[in-house]
Amino acid sequence: MDELDILKKDWNKANTDYKKLSVKDIYPLLQKKSSSIVKTLFYISIAELMFWILINSIPYFYSDEYRQKLEIIYSNEYVLTGITFLTYGIILLFIYLLYNSYKSISVTDNAKNLMKSIIKTRNIIKCYVIYNLVIAGVSLIFGFYHALNNDPNIASQIENFSSKELAIAYAIMIICTVIFILIVYLFYKIIYGFLLKRLNKNYNELEKLEV
């Protein structure tokens, strides 16, 4: 008889170490809120969507100066309208993908498929974050470049720069952008790493079995 068979003998009779709940005890449990990782992931994705929508929208609606600058940059209003449509179109696409992905998560699926659908959802959020980081990076570099060339105050200051100093200014600008993006990226890595560490470990364990 191996170890598990010894355990099996005890397994079905060992019911005394926990409290047997009555119907009355169970009813209140149904009203409690879930604290599952899917729910946390859902809140994070809503927060992500809201955060980036606000980051993109607030300066435009609350700062006349910012709006004027944008309108000068995109002197052709069709370009600005096109970009706005594209931006919100992409956000809507992500909302649609996330909705579908959440709907596919089912606790009655087998363990591997359940993990797979959660990882897929997390990847959609990851893509959304990467998309926003790329846009933020490009906007920052473009903004810096535009300021260097068109802002009268900055232009008068860099007028006397040698080509070497100008190259340093550009390098600093790029390094600042990369550092900003890296910090935000690491922040996400830590959040998701912490939340999905156990899930990833278990998924890899199941994957390993099939190799």
Partner: peptide, 16 residues
Amino acid sequence: WMYRVGLNTAITLYRK
């Protein structure tokens, strides 16, 4: 059905 939901919750969904 309970086995599946119970194990899935313990292995995947439950945040310790």
